[in-house]
């Protein structure tokens, strides 16, 4: 029993249809709990008032925006090395989810930033990095759409994802160098284990982050299943000679 057996599309579909109901349920429960708890169950911040509550949407979305790209990078590497179709299709399926997460992070950031900083947008390093990430997602999705042969598309987008990751990191440092910025430090520093938000805000945030993670997973599995069925339909049409 190896994990790679789920790289077979048919096995993957069977597993995903068993897992999906639980995953969706868990995702919906976590996201709803996290958001409701955050919006109604926490006190207003002394300085920021109730505007701070957008954090329960903003931080998890931003987290998943980056993690989605990271997942695409891993999936691309697996495709390039082991050539499992599910892996390539999962990367393809994750990209639109990732770009929507990026968009949510950008929009909620603007809504938060307006009352706090007095501006909808500032060329702050974090904001700018997310804008650049958004552009990378756009390019990646556009390349998938542009190539007719699915295997060639998977190859080329995988290399783009690899090269793009290097340049995204470079851009991150370049942008930090270029403008020092307004944005507050990270709310949940993983590396140090410390945190800058009080427990009362932190727990709903944690639930919300877990919920967004589960939601991402559910969406990606669902979309991967769709992509697999599309490929399956195309393969069957090709076999029976009825054209694409």
């Amino acid at each position: 029993m190896s994990i790679w057996q789920y790289a077979n599309p048919v096995k993957f579909l069977a597993l995903s249809s068993r897992v999906q109901p639980y995953l969706w349920a868990a995702a919906v429960i976590c996201v709803t709990t996290g958001l409701l708890w955050g919006f109604f169950g926490t006190p207003d911040d002394a300085r920021q008032g109730s505007t701070v509550k957008i954090i329960y949407l903003h931080v998890p979305a931003a987290l998943m925006a980056i993690n989605a790209w990271f997942m695409m990078l891993i999936a691309s590497l697996i495709w390039l090395v082991r050539r499992h179709h599910v892996s390539a299709l999962a990367a393809k399926a994750a990209a639109p989810v990732g770009i929507v997460m990026t968009l949510i992070a950008l929009v909620t950031g603007a809504i938060w930033g307006q009352p706090m900083w007095g501006t909808w947008w500032a060329w702050d390093p974090r904001l700018t990095s997310f804008l650049i990430l958004f552009l990378f997602y756009l390019g990646y999705i556009a390349l998938w759409e542009a190539i007719e042969d699915p295997d060639t598309a998977a190859d080329l987008t995988s290399v783009l994802c690899l090269v793009g990751s290097v340049f995204a990191i470079l851009s991150r440092y370049a942008v930090q160098f270029w403008n020092q910025g307004l944005h507050q430090g990270t709310s949940v520093p993983v590396a140090t284990g410390g945190r800058t938000v009080a427990d009362v805000f932190f727990y709903p945030l944690l639930v919300s982050m877990v919920g967004f993670g589960l939601l991402f997973l559910a969406l990606v599995i669902y979309r991967t299943g769709t992509e697999i069925r599309l490929r399956r339909a195309a393969a069957m049409r090709a076999r029976t000679g009825r054209g694409a």
């Binding site: 990378f136 756009l138 542009a146 190539i147 290399v159 793009g164 340049f167 942008v175």
Partner: peptide, 27 residues
């Protein structure tokens, strides 16, 4: 090279290349 086989790939190429130009442009 990424867009070589794509018909009318010019616009797509700009979309792919411009984000990669960001660090060079900034520095």
């Amino acid at each position: 090279a990424l867009t070589v086989g794509i018909k009318r790939g010019g616009l797509l190429m700009s979309l792919l290349v411009l984000p990669l130009y960001v660090p060079t442009l900034i520095f």
